[in-house]
């Protein structure tokens, strides 16, 4: 395509003189691109510049007190709830995707329903998950504000993400792999676990990374499920994650500096997550093409 309409820069300028409308459109498109990029650069830059000076060692003290407002317990809680939510969500998400791709027959009505509900789940805003978690896990199951209630709520929230990415990854595995495995006498289960799943690992991994990103940044779904108690928490204790910690700090208005510092940590985590996911995408998708 490029070879066909190769134009010199001067030809292009001449053409724009004849078509001012086109030039205007070009300007608008460029403007939108510049706007998007500068918003991101400004946001990240502003928070890093204002936040990094406040990253003091006392913010990473082992114990939280109202003096040092340490974020370390919140970081531990975030790690804990992420692992817990993923431990619940990955088996179900991957299992569901395996059923949809490997077992379900075409035209199966159940598959249609599963797809619709998964799509519905991915469209539900986090505050609704939070309400549901509060009504179901906290109140009806009487778990109280707890890490477990928060993790269960998050697990449902990220389930569609893991399901969808795993499904796509499984669909990408060529049928010849399965046929080869069957041909060598392997059963269906063996084929799935030994042949299909291993080749789908990169896709599944990228889904998990996406899920981690959502969990780490989540606030609305956790306030009324995991609660806002500062300090490292066990399964049935209430505890705040880093995002909620930051919300509490910026709400109170007394700890703006510490809120900046927390924002820096959150941003760094997000940067690492995004970097990891594009690294995986590059590493595993390049040779396939």
């Amino acid at each position: 395509m490029e070879a066909v309409n190769r134009q010199s820069f001067r030809d292009k300028m001449k053409s724009y003189q004849k078509h001012p409308g086109s030039f205007l459109l070009l300007l608008l498109v460029l403007l939108a691109a510049v706007f998007t990029v500068s918003v991101l650069v400004f946001l990240v830059g502003y928070i890093l510049i204002h936040g990094i000076p406040y990253l003091k060692p006392s913010l990473f003290a082992w114990e939280y007190t109202s003096e040092n407002v340490s974020m370390l317990p919140a970081m531990i809680n975030t790690l804990f709830i992420t692992v817990l939510a993923l431990a619940i969500s990955i088996p179900f998400g991957v299992g569901a995707a395996i059923y949809l791709v490997e077992y379900a027959k075409k035209g199966n009505k159940l598959v249609g329903v599963i797809r619709v509900t998964a799509e519905t789940l991915s469209g539900i805003p986090s505050i609704i998950y939070g309400l549901f978690g509060m009504l179901f896990f906290v109140t009806a199951l009487k778990w109280g504000y707890s890490m477990l209630a928060g993790a269960m709520t998050l697990a449902i929230m990220v389930l569609p993400v893991i399901m969808r990415t795993t499904e796509e990854a499984l669909l990408c595995v060529p049928d010849s792999f399965r046929e080869g495995s069957f041909g060598l006498g392997a059963g269906k289960l063996r084929t799935i676990f030994r042949i299909v799943l291993p080749s789908a690992v990169p896709g599944i991994l990228s889904g998990i990374i996406l899920a981690i990103g959502r969990i780490v940044g989540e606030t609305a779904a956790l306030i009324y499920t995991a609660g806002t108690v500062a300090g490292a928490a066990g399964f049935f204790d209430s505890g705040r994650t880093l995002a909620i910690h930051m919300y509490s700090l910026s709400r109170e208005g007394m700890h703006t500096h510490e809120a900046y510092a927390t924002a820096v940590v959150l941003l760094v985590v997000v940067l690492i997550i995004n970097g990891a996911s594009s690294l995986i995408a590059k590493k595993f998708e390049a040779p396939r093409k």
Binding site: T36, L43, E218, M246, Y260, A263, V270, N274
Partner: peptide, 21 residues
Amino acid sequence: PIVDLLAGIPSIVYGFFGLVV
């Protein structure tokens, strides 16, 4: 990646940015 990053920033960080800027 820039657009992806924009999608990945937690809403609480957006909110804080709105609050201070």
